[in-house]
Design a protein around this nucleic acid. Structure first.
Lengths: 166, 166
DNA sequence: CTATCATGTAACATAATAAGTTACATAAAA
DNA sequence: TTTTATGTAACTTATTATGTTACATGATAG
């Protein structure tokens, strides 16, 4: 995989696992045949090993399956209607959402304690709100959003990575 | 500053600027004399230069002031009632709140576009909600929370770093 | 005036983590 | 048996807040 970073000098740092996984799930749903990590890596502009690592959690939750050998690759075990963003997030190991520190060890200072309580309350509620939204948002819904973006003539075609690329 | 990290093996990575700054503002309000970066560093268990760096934004926004020389240090320019968490956050340069990627460059894939739109919508709204809460939460309110944590006998004393330490 | 104390800031080192990469083992199909 | 694919450990890279050192500037005490 030759110097992707030189070509696309993205920010390239933050956690890209969630959007990458959603992206892949939808493409998997639009393919009849299994998708190899190699092919997925090209879609996501990343290394096949990163793909396997990222999807491992979903495999362990039986949301998807990977088969070895000729004709192998990744495929869905559930319809996208039955996969919410909450479940994807859980399958990824519920990685942190906030950059802000989850607050350090209490060290006896009551000012620190009051500050932490105030911040925790806001951030916890925001997290709960996000997860609630995730619970009610299926990958199928995002797939429908994608289809609405298609020109009418392609509305019922297989996908987008086959032609417009990426 | 000898090996603080060995003593407190915190996670020590995430953005601690917001809670540290709030912590400091309240302590500044409880002191008659200016607080030196050295003293603040001991409160926050960090290096004085980190303190100066973190507070620089607040100084530039005229929320606080720093004086050099003997008897110098940091002091408030506004009552805590007039400083909301939103303003502190702004003075810190509005650092990112989310770990999740702000989404990469669009590369033409409509699936990616739909995924990004869906995620952006949720995360943006959550961010707006947090900032709205920050707007209506003053540092003075957190200071009152702190005072409510004090034992009754100390309810009107100066602070906490003078005795219980940290 | 000068010695001391304090901030201001550049420059570099450290730590944590997702991402990127290499290497090799395992399994399935041709 | 060869080829294709995943599974995974181990290592490297990139990014960013933090930690640290060094030095310049300014203010006060004597």
């Amino acid at each position: 995989m030759l110097g992707l970073r030189e070509i696309l000098a993205d920010t390239m740092k933050n956690d890209q696992r969630l959007w990458r996984t959603l992206h892949v799930l939808i493409h998997m749903n639009q393919h009849q045949t299994p998708l190899t990590s190699q092919a997925i890596g090209q879609m996501l502009n990343t290394h096949p090993v990163v793909v396997r690592r990222t999807l491992a959690g979903l495999r362990k939750q039986n949301l998807i399956q990977a088969e070895k050998g000729h004709g192998g690759g990744w495929k869905l075990l559930l319809p996208l209607e039955q996969i919410s963003l909450r479940e994807v997030y859980a399958a990824l190991g519920e990685p942190p959402l906030w950059v802000l520190s989850p607050v350090t060890e209490p060290r006896g200072c009551l000012v620190e304690k009051a500050v932490n309580q105030a911040l925790d309350e806001v951030l916890q509620q925001a997290r709960d709100w996000v997860l609630e939204r995730f619970s009610h948002l299926t990958v199928a819904q995002i797939e429908r959003d994608f289809q609405a973006l298609l020109p009418f003539s392609e509305r019922h075609c297989t996908g987008s990575h086959d032609n417009p690329s990426t």
